[in-house]
Simulated scan of single mutants.
Amino acid sequence: MRHWLRKIHLITALLSGIVVSIVGITGSLYVFEPELTAWLQRDYYQPQLSSRPFADDAAIASYIEQQTQAQLQTLQWPVRSRQTYAFKLFGDSNWYYFDQSSGQISQNKGAFNHPFFELVYNIHANLLLGEPGRYITATASLLFALSSILTGLYLWWPRRLTRWRHALKIHRGNARRVNFELHSVSAAWFAIPLFIMGITGGYFLYTAPLQKMLDMITLSEAAPADPWQQQYQFAGVMQPKLSAAEAIQQMAQHYPELHPRNIWLAEHDDDAVVFGYQNSLSLHSGPRRRAFIHANPYTGEVLSRYDPATLPRGAALAAAWLIPLHFGEFGGLFTRILWFIGGFLPLLLFVTGIKMWLNRRPNTTHGRR
C-alpha cells in the first residue's frame, strides 16, 4: 500500500507543484495586503484632517454626485486599512476615493487596491489566464490538499510513539538525508495550515460540491437559493428610482448592530439595490459576518436577505470562516504570520521533492560506453 501511496503522492505533487508554488507565494504576499496597501496608497487611504463636515452618509452621497455631476453606482465605506470612502459612478469603470474630512475627491482613475496587489491577486486567483486559470489554480489546490498533503502525512506518520520527537526534527547527515528531512519535517509542521489553504482555495470555484460535503459533515440542511441569482421584475412602476442619498437612508433602517460596508445602486430595470453590512470594519480575529439585503430600487422594500446568522449550519460555517481561514486572519497576527510563512512551503516541498525523485532514479547512462 505504501508503494502505491508514494506513486500517488509523486504524481499529484508533480501535477500541482508548480501551480501551488506560485499560488502560495502570491498568497503570502497578499496576507499583509491591508497594511502594505495603506502605506502605498496613504495619500488616498488616510483622511487629511481630523474633522468631518458632513452630517451623515446620505450627505456624503449627495455631495459626491453634486461635485461629479454624475450618479453613484456604488459607495464603499472605510474598511480594514482604508480610512476614506471609495466610489464608482455609472458609466465610469474607474474607482475614486473620497476624503470625508476635507471633501476632496481623488483625481486618479485607478484600481480599487494598489496596482501591485491587483496584479498579485490576479496571479494568485487565475495565473493571469482569466476563467481557465481559475480552474487550474482551484484544481491544483484541491489536488495538493486532498492528495499530496494527506498521502505525505500518512507516509511520514511515525509508527511508534517513541519516534515522534525524532520525526519532528531535522538532523545532521549527508545532503540527501537533510533534503529528505527538510521535505518531510517541514510538511509535517505545516500540514494543517497547508490543508486549510488548499481546501478553502478550491472552495472559491468548486463551491457547490464542497458545500454539499460540508453540509453532510455538519449534518446540516442545504443552503437557501443564492439571492445574487434571483431575477426581479419592476415593470410598470411609474415613480423614479431612489436616489443614492435616499437608498442610504433606507439602508440605515436595517441591521443596527452591524456596520455599513457598501451599497450598490440598480443599473438595469430588473436590478435590485444591494445593501452590504459587516460585523467589524477593521482587521480582526474570529469569524466574519457579512449580511446583504436586496431591496426594491423604487421603494426600498426588502426583497431578500442573506445573513450568516440565519443560514443552516454548514452554509453559516462557510460564510463566516472561509475568508478568515484562507488568509489566516482567524487567529489574529499569529496565524497571519504562520500563513505568510506557510505560503512559501509549497515551493520548498516541490524543490526538495524533485531532488528526492531525481536521487532515487536509476542511473541509466552508466555502462553504455
Rank of each mutant, 00 (worst) to 15 (best):
W321K: 13
R177H: 13
Y255P: 03
I25P: 08
S243I: 00
Q66C: 02
L146R: 12
H259A: 06
Q230R: 08
L214E: 06
L317R: 09
V23H: 01
Q69P: 02
Y63M: 08
A295W: 08
Y44V: 14
P256C: 14
A145L: 03
Y45E: 09
R289D: 04
I217T: 15
P47S: 01
I22S: 05
S304T: 14
V178F: 11
T200D: 01
E301K: 08
A235D: 15
G328C: 06
V120E: 00
W189L: 12
L75R: 14
V79G: 06
I123D: 01
R177G: 15
P224N: 04
A191S: 12
I64K: 04
V79F: 14
G343P: 02
R288M: 15
L317T: 09
S280V: 05
T139I: 08
N113D: 05
N262Y: 09
H166K: 05
V23Y: 09
S243Q: 03
D307W: 00
K109Q: 13
V185Q: 06
L40W: 06
A61W: 04
P324K: 12
G133L: 08
S148P: 07
Q233L: 08
G133I: 06
D56A: 10
T335K: 06
D92V: 03
L75Q: 14
L303Q: 02
K88A: 10
G276H: 10
L155I: 11
F116W: 08
P297I: 15
A188E: 09
N126G: 05
K355I: 11
Q100G: 14
P47Y: 03
T162V: 12
P308F: 02
A235R: 13
L265I: 11
W264N: 11
G103D: 00
L347Q: 14
Q233N: 14
T37D: 12
R336T: 04
K169E: 04
L150G: 00
T218V: 15
Y154T: 10
R177E: 15
N363M: 03
L49W: 04
G342V: 05
R369Q: 07
P158Y: 05
A266V: 01
L325C: 11
A59M: 01
R288D: 07
H3G: 10
L283E: 15
Q239K: 15
S184P: 03
W39E: 01
L214V: 12
F54D: 07
W189H: 08
S280E: 10
R290P: 12
R261N: 13
E181N: 06
L75H: 08
L345A: 12
L129Y: 10
L119R: 00
H254W: 13
L161D: 10
W95T: 08
M251K: 08
I199A: 12
T137W: 03
I199F: 12
S81M: 02
L349M: 15
D226E: 11
P209H: 05
L345H: 11
L219D: 12
A320Y: 03
L347K: 11
G332S: 07
L345I: 15
E33P: 00
Q229E: 14
Q104L: 10
I199G: 08
I293T: 01
Y96T: 11
T218R: 11
D269W: 07
N296H: 05
S28L: 06
N174D: 07
L10E: 13
V120A: 04
G331Y: 02
H166V: 00
S220Y: 04
R82S: 13
P209L: 02
T84Q: 05
L333Q: 02
I337L: 15
Y232C: 00
F330Y: 09
Q239P: 04
